[in-house]
Every structure is written in structure tokens, then in C-alpha cells.
């Protein structure tokens, strides 16, 4: 019973972070802050949901698999976030150079 309550709480907290991240993507003004909202909040939300599901399934192997899914997602999403941000910065720098020159 207590386990189920904790699972539900973890899932709800995870969903809340996903919602917050989505709201950030929709409302924030520029690409960098949107990326920040998307990667930070969504990864945290996914972490909570993964923890909730691991607790729900309650088998050490499945928990390990779920945990590694979360780790891989963290790695992939932060890398793509970095690449997008770097690309945007390069675009802006070259634009500034053109305007100055």
C-alpha cells in the first residue's frame, strides 16, 4: 500500500516536471532558455517517472534496465541540446560579423 502511494507520488511529480518543461518551451522567448527548460525539466521528470516505474515493477533487473534507459536519455538529450545551442551561437556570431563588416 505504501509502495503504491510512493509510486503514484513519483509519477505525479514526474508528470509535473514534464508539464513545466513543455510550458517553458511554449512560453520562453529565445532558443537557449527553451532548450534549458526542455532538457532540464524533462530529464528530471523522466527520472521521477523511471523511479516510479522501477518501484512499481520491483524487480532488480527491470530497475537496472529502467535506470540505464534514463542514463542513456540523459546523455543523448544533453548532447543534442549542446549541439543545437552551439549551432545557434555560431549562426549568431557569423550574423554579427556580417553586420559589422
Amino acid at each position: 500500500m505504501i509502495k503504491e502511494v510512493i509510486t503514484v507520488i513519483l509519477l505525479v511529480v514526474g508528470c509535473f516536471f514534464f508539464l513545466a518543461g513543455t510550458l517553458g518551451v511554449l512560453r520562453f522567448p529565445d532558443l537557449f532558455s527553451r532548450l534549458h527548460a526542455l532538457t532540464k525539466a524533462d530529464n528530471l521528470g523522466l527520472g521521477f517517472i523511471a523511479a516510479g516505474m522501477a518501484l512499481h515493477i520491483a524487480s532488480p533487473w527491470a530497475a537496472l534496465k529502467i535506470f540505464s534507459i534514463w542514463l542513456f536519455t540523459l546523455l543523448a538529450s544533453s548532447t543534442s541540446c549542446y549541439l543545437i545551442a552551439r549551432f545557434q551561437r555560431e549562426q549568431e556570431q557569423s550574423k554579427n560579423k556580417k553586420e559589422r563588416g
Partner: peptide
């Protein structure tokens, strides 16, 4: 990019 290279090597 060193980061991209490392991530690709890891994946």
C-alpha cells in the same frame, strides 16, 4: 567537436 566525438565513441 570533442564532446560529439566522445559521445559517438560511447554510443
Amino acid at each position: 567537436d570533442p564532446l560529439l566525438r566522445q559521445v559517438i565513441l560511447f554510443f
